[in-house]
Design a protein around this nucleic acid. Structure first.
Length: 337
DNA sequence: TGTATTTGACCTTC
DNA sequence: GAAGGTCAAATACA
């Protein structure tokens, strides 16, 4: 790792640590204006994201080097192949070269899965509106599954190089459940368009309903009548490895509005296939089950939270209820160096 | 005409 | 070789 990057990484992580400490002081009941908490959480998020990007970047390079050194011969062949591509510009070779490179990158991307439950059997007419714009690039019949799987990638892939993709598949067991697998984080910053409305409405949701329950199996349930939202906290061990949370009275703010016409929320064009509600985000019951990438757990976990429609940076966790794991090595050199 | 979707072919992984 | 994932030409649509 380059010294500059190493220092940047330490700087970002240290800043995150300090901001977390500040936030903790703000969380004292006697202080803590909500705006300050929100600002601090955003700063913390930003700081960790930068750090993780650095980590991600370096681990990518590392992996590439490892691959090269482990299979030098193949690497050389690849180089030759790429030269050939430039010279001969044969379509086939270009395709091979590109796809190998892309696959190497894809393997390093974090991945996590959510289950989205569509309630009332009201078929929305568009894609899941999770705050990002997706472009469908493929559909595949999956062996043993009753329904095909759809493949989406970020609309801004070409323009901004955003590598985020998602797969949407209707569940065999419950036709109202869609399994959405996200891969890679958005680097196109398009989520900001939903953040502005969500915070206020989210708070409103919580204030109006205040029906959050904790189930014995550590699932958080947000009961909004027909719109249920749950989060399997058992998966938080994977999603947030460094922390442990207690959910006695969490404040989490899903980004949909209860009672709102769900179909109206759908804005972007999509497939009209009856089952293909890939972009549909209304009336959801989500179970986030994180499947970690090959990079590092913390990269995947953090990315999954910041990138997921469940949490797109707009939630304000009530950290009063979050117990920082005392084992988390915030102060250890292992963590910051 | 530009953009999104469909779909068969191709590639990688297991 | 089967299955999953992606590409890209063809097609649809606004």
């Amino acid at each position: 790792m380059e010294i500059m990057e190493h220092n940047s990484l330490i700087s970002e992580l240290t800043q995150g640590k300090e901001l977390a400490l500040q936030l903790r002081t703000h969380l004292h009941p006697s202080s803590s204006p909500e705006q300050a908490c929100l600002f601090l959480t955003e700063m913390i998020q930003s700081s960790f994201e930068k750090a993780l990007l650095l980590l991600n970047f370096n681990s990518s390079n590392l992996k590439t080097h490892q691959i090269s050194s482990l299979d030098e011969q193949e690497g050389e062949e690849e180089e030759e192949e790429e030269e050939e591509v430039e010279e001969s510009s044969t379509k086939k070779k270009r395709k091979i070269s590109r796809s190998r490179d892309a696959l190497k990158k894809r393997k390093l991307l974090p991945r996590w899965t959510e289950e989205i439950k569509v309630c009332n059997g009201s078929a929305p007419e568009g894609p899941l509106n999770d705050g990002y714009s997706w472009r469908k690039y493929g559909q595949k019949d999956i062996h043993g599954a009753n329904f095909p799987r759809c493949y989406y990638r970020c609309t801004h892939r070409n323009v901004r190089g955003c590598l985020a993709t998602k797969q949407v598949q209707k569940s065999d067991n419950d036709p109202n459940i869609f399994e959405v697998t996200y891969r890679g984080r958005h680097t196109c910053n398009q989520s900001s368009n939903l953040g502005s409305t969500s915070i206020s409405s989210q708070n409103q949701i919580y204030e109006e309903t205040n029906q959050i329950q904790q189930k014995p199996n550590s699932e958080i349930w947000f009961d909004f009548g027909d719109n249920n939202f749950n989060l399997k906290t058992e998966d938080f061990d994977q999603v947030f490895p460094p922390f442990s949370f207690s959910y006695e009275e969490p404040i989490m703010n899903p980004t949909f509005i209860p009672g709102e016409d769900l179909t109206a929320a759908v804005s972007s064009p999509a497939t009209d296939t009856a089952w293909d509600w890939s972009g549909y985000d209304g009336g959801v019951q989500r179970v986030q089950s994180s499947e970690q990438s090959a990079v590092t757990e913390i990269v995947s976990a953090t990315t999954s939270v910041t990138n997921s429609p469940i949490y797109n940076g707009d939630w304000d966790f009530s950290l009063d209820n979050i117990d920082f794991d005392h084992n988390f090595p915030f102060d250890s050199l292992d963590f910051i160096s």
